[in-house]
Structures are given as structure tokens and as C-alpha cells.
Design a protein around this nucleic acid. Structure first.
Lengths: 232, 232
DNA sequence: GGCCTTGCGTAACAGTTTGTAACATGACGT
DNA sequence: ACGTCATGTTACAAACTGTTACGCAAGGCC
């Protein structure tokens, strides 16, 4: 994985600086560009793993820039839009953005989105549709991705609800690393889930059906799957 | 697509002949092999898109054969097992089978499984996690795969339940071709759904929320999405 | 240590989703 | 036309899911 390289295209210099600083603290390599031209230059000059693109660039039209980039390179793009109107969003979509987020946004949420997009864009196909490696083992448990079957160490099969299975997959895809509620929500493709305490309750239910100790709490942070995951 | 080539490895000659005839009628090119050796020979000699492998080969151990094939080539395998005991099933899994089915099986279900595996094994990544082409249009409607948003021709957004969305995706992945209930169930990764009339009711609900005419009934067969699907 | 603040676990509740069963409707063959 | 069978539709029950409220536990602070 090493360091992911982000290109931040944002014409508001102050905003750009703040964001860049924040993202750097979070472990990304960040390049900033203030205009369409410099963005394209930066893209040509160095490897970029993901572009954060402000739709409301002063002179240029962010949507057009997005399309332009898309034609040139296959880099994931997250559009940042000040107007959260749906129409605007859709315009971003149709041009090929991988995700969008409306200003003002929660930094954690942005982070979660970035990770989610990077994960999806990565080489590894999504857990669900792999052919080999469809059976995962962790702490004596077994998860079969093909039919969503979970087997306890004793051989007993436990039945999880759809949501519980989805949560388990999130943990299995990120073993031994702490996940914030925002990240979990993003991975579940459900931003609203980060609002209330739905995630906590969900984790509780999953714990109840599996081993209580499997998912540990990182106080103040989130949850972590306390087991290595082996692929067959 | 053209003709998919199946290799049927089955030592019961009568069963093999019946199955082969059935599958040929369904539009597959079928080769049969009665033993481990002839299976490997057949594999070496011609392109094979999918292997149907009986676990209970007379002399040989189907599981071992599966592993052997896996090492040699990256061909999807569906294991057919007479013993539906879970343990046996799992043995098939761990060795890398893409799916399994227990004898005696419903021919339609087998067919659905075959199609599902072929679909997953195909080049096209699953609809859900594509980056481009995430917005599909059909008959004036729009489906955005990234956030599961469905928009009516007038621009109104309709909210579908999880199950309804999944069904819509199945239809969108197979536009203009009739889908049997078994195929739909298999695509939904839910074999039980083929039992009762869950699919009918589900289709009804989806129809209700979209255009009544979008999904047509093929009497005696199943359902069909009566619209072309355009990718942006 | 004791107290207080804050975060987390969980039980109870309500809204939603989903499958089943039963009945209604419609299509097809005779 | 009539009967039969497949599909449409509705009502209901069960399961699922998020919210809220309350209690407990973990740290911080004195």
C-alpha cells in the first residue's frame, strides 16, 4: 500500500491548505492544484492515486475538468461540491466521478470516503465476488463469501442477517486495524449509519452471534477485528 | 459470448448422458469425462469455460481432482455431490470450487448456478463495484449503482428496499432476456427464494414502484426487463 | 482513592422489510 | 364458453433495523 498520493484540486487557497494539512496528518501524500491547468500538469508529472476535485473552481467548470481527466487517465475522482443540490450531484456523476461529497463536510467522513474509493479502486476485487479465496478463516471461524455462510469453531453454522453479514465483511476486509464508525458506515455504503448509534447496536448484535471477544472496542476510536484472517 | 463449453466429469454413464443431453438442449457445448485421467486430457485438449465435477467419482476422489485442476488451470468449477452433508460441501469449498450443488438437484437450478458462475467468472466486473458506467439508463429511468439511487423519467427519485434494488440489478444485468425464477434466485444468491412465490411478490412490488410495463411476464417461463440498458 | 465526565453495551420499542398464504384475476387449451 | 393453471394482489406474521433510554465501565482530575 505504502503512501497513497492524493491530488487536491481546489481554488480556495486557504481551504486547500487546511485540507492538505489534515490529509497529510492522516498519512496521505498530498499535492494541491488551484486550477485546471495545474491539475493536468500535476497529473502528467507524477503518479496520483486519487483526485479530490472541487466542482466550483473559479474560472473553470469542475465537471468539465472531471471529464477531461477521465479521458486522459483512469484515476478515481471524488467531487467536492458546495451546492448539494441533487442536480449538481448528478452532473458530477454522469461525468464519471467515483463519489461526491457536499461542502461543508465532516473530515472523518471525507477520510472514510477516500479510503472506500481507494479500496474499491485497488487491485483486489471486492470480497464478495472473488472466485478463489472465497473461504476466510479467522480465530477458528469460517466465512464463506459465496453463500454468506458463517461457521463457528465447533462446526455450528450461525445465521446472520444481511446487515450483520455486511458488517462482518467490513471487518474481514480490514482485520487488525481499527475502524471508526465513519469508516464502517462508508464501507457499508450508508452514510446515515454514522449519525446515530446504529453501528454500535449492530456491532453488539454481531458480537452476540459470534464470539464476544472477536470484535474489540477501541475506546474513543471505534472497533477492531481482533483476529488474523487467513485465505485458503 | 457464443457457445459456452462445459466439461462434465461424472462416472455414472447414464447420468452423464442425461445431463449432457439436457445441457446441450440448453445451448451449451458439452464434453463428458468419466475419470480423472480423461478429464485432465479433455482439459488439455480444448478450451473449457466451466467444469461440472462429481465429487463421488468411482475410484478417484473428486476433491483431489478439483485441487489438481485448480493448480493446472483457472477454470471455474461447480462440484456436484451426492452427499449433501455440510462437511462434504465444505471440503469442496476449501479446495477451490466456485459453487456446489447437491444431488438430486433441480435441472433449472443447476442451469441457474452455471449461468451465475459463468457470469461472475466473466470479464465484466460485477455491476455493483464498477467505477465508470455506474449510471445506467433504461426506458427513461436512471439507476445509479454507487448509491443505489433510482430516478423516474420525470426526475423523481423513488426509494427501493434492499431486496427490490437487488432485483432491479439482476434485471439490469440481463436486459431483454427472459429470466426464470430459478435464475433470478441464483442471481440474488438466495436459492430458497426459488421455492415459494417470493420472487413473484417481489417483482410485483418492484413493478408497483416503477413502471408497470417495465418488467414483462413470460408466461410459463419467468420475467423479462423490457427495455434496453444504456451505460453512460 | 473517590468523583465526574464521557463513551459504550444493551434492552425495549417502533418502523420497515420480507416471505407466506389465500384469494382474485387472467391466459391458454379444449 | 369452460376449466385449469400460472400469475397478480392483498393481508398477515415474522424478521430485521434504527432509535432511544438507561446503566455500567473507563479514564481524567482532584
Amino acid at each position: 500500500m505504502s503512501l497513497h498520493r492524493l491530488l487536491l484540486v481546489e481554488d480556495d487557497a486557504e481551504m486547500a491548505a487546511m485540507l492538505a494539512a489534515y490529509l497529510q496528518r492522516q498519512g496521505f501524500h498530498v499535492t494541491t492544484a488551484g486550477s485546471r491547468t495545474s491539475a493536468l500538469t500535476a497529473l502528467a508529472g507524477a503518479r496520483v492515486d486519487l483526485i479530490l476535485l472541487d466542482v466550483s473552481l473559479g474560472d473553470d467548470d469542475g465537471v468539465a475538468v472531471c471529464a477531461e481527466i477521465r479521458q486522459a487517465q483512469d484515476v478515481p475522482i471524488i467531487m467536492v461540491s458546495a451546492l448539494s443540490a441533487d442536480h449538481q450531484r448528478m452532473a458530477g456523476y454522469e461525468v464519471g466521478a467515483d463519489d461526491y461529497i457536499a461542502k461543508p463536510f465532516n473530515p472523518d467522513l471525507l477520510l472514510a470516503r477516500i479510503r472506500a474509493v481507494l479500496r474499491r479502486a485497488g487491485r483486489a476485487p471486492s470480497l464478495t465476488h472473488r472466485r478463489r479465496d472465497a473461504v476466510l478463516r479467522f480465530a477458528g471461524w469460517t466465512y464463506d463469501a459465496r453463500h454468506d455462510e458463517v461457521t463457528a469453531p465447533g462446526g455450528w453454522q450461525v445465521s446472520l442477517s444481511g446487515r450483520e453479514t455486511a458488517l462482518l465483511r467490513v471487518f474481514l476486509a480490514n482485520p487488525l486495524i481499527p475502524l471508526s464508525r465513519e469508516e464502517i458506515a462508508a464501507a457499508l455504503d450508508d452514510d446515515e449509519a454514522a449519525e446515530g448509534r446504529a453501528i454500535d447496536v449492530l456491532v453488539g448484535r454481531l458480537r452476540h452471534k459470534t464470539d464476544a471477544g472477536l470484535i474489540r472496542t477501541e475506546r474513543g476510536t471505534g472497533y477492531i477485528l481482533a483476529a488474523e484472517v487467513l485465505r485458503d
